[in-house]
């Protein structure tokens, strides 16, 4: 019986292992993340710094359609701060009573302002490449957080013999080794409010944390609830086992 269970477990792990990531890319470098593991939580400081990096750097090309300014309350911004952040953007609204679309100041309930009106406009402004939406990027890539961090910090000169297409950049972590996006992060591109030095690694790590939160905003409550549910079920299993033994005592 035991063998059967072991075999089933082995079958599962073998079969369920995700298909190989695109063979031509280097494996992402593994980082330690505060949100790893069953008790992992997000580091609020990293999330807020990461949001700044997104806001100042990434958001000029990458949209985050699933996120609204109000969601920032979740990473520790106050209502006034959120209102102030939103007020920095103009969004389209309408039609008004005259039937015209009009621009107004963004509110907390608005989604993050998209840099381009649509995919075509985004491609036209980026040499035909499409800067993907980042709301789900950490879930949409295998080993997402490590991949993003490796990609953001992985720009270097192409090795001898490797030619890189025009307008492309060498990055060994990107499938195929060439990416249209130039190295997005430069040291001191932003100034963090908490005086953390804005090195490329720091910014990459923080913005990755922010994007991990953006992809899985429910993660902390999910894991917290998970611990409670598991404890409950384990105790319940133990009790039911005791009941089962009592009930069966007279059969054997």
């Amino acid at each position: 019986m035991r063998r059967m269970i072991l075999a089933a477990a082995a079958a599962l792990t073998l079969v369920a292992g995700p298909a190989l990531a695109a063979g031509e890319a280097e494996h992402p470098r593994q980082q330690k993340w505060s949100f790893d593991g069953p008790f992992g939580t997000f580091d609020r400081g990293a999330l807020q710094r990461g949001f700044l990096v997104y806001k100042e750097v990434c958001s000029s090309c990458h949209a985050m359609q699933q996120k609204a300014y109000r969601h920032l309350a979740n990473i520790g911004f106050s209502e006034e701060e959120i209102r102030a952040i939103a007020a920095g953007y103009k969004v389209m609204d309408g039609p008004n009573d005259e039937g015209e679309m009009f621009e107004r100041t963004a509110r907390a309930s608005d989604r993050f302002k998209r840099p381009f009106a649509n995919e075509k406009a985004a491609r036209a402004a980026n040499n035909g490449a499409y800067p993907v939406d980042l709301s789900l990027i950490v879930k949409a890539r295998h080993d997402g957080a490590n991949y993003l961090y490796s990609l953001l910090t992985g720009y270097k000169a192409p090795p001898p013999g490797k030619t890189v297409g025009e307008g492309m950049h060498y990055n060994p972590y990107f499938p195929g080794g060439q990416i249209a996006m130039g190295a997005p992060l430069n040291a001191d591109a932003v100034t963090f409010a908490d005086n953390t030095p804005a090195t490329v690694e720091q910014m990459a790590k923080d913005v990755t944390s922010f994007l991990a939160w953006a992809a899985e905003p429910e993660m902390e409550s999910r894991k917290r609830m998970g611990v409670q549910v598991m404890l409950f079920l384990i105790v319940l299993s133990g009790m039911l086992y005791a009941v089962k033994r009592k009930v069966w005592a007279d059969v054997h």
Partner: peptide, 16 residues
């Protein structure tokens, strides 16, 4: 003791 066990397990199941 047995009755208590049944009751406790049943109660816990109902709570679940």
């Amino acid at each position: 003791r047995r009755d208590f066990l049944y009751l406790a397990a049943g109660g816990m199941g109902a709570v679940g």
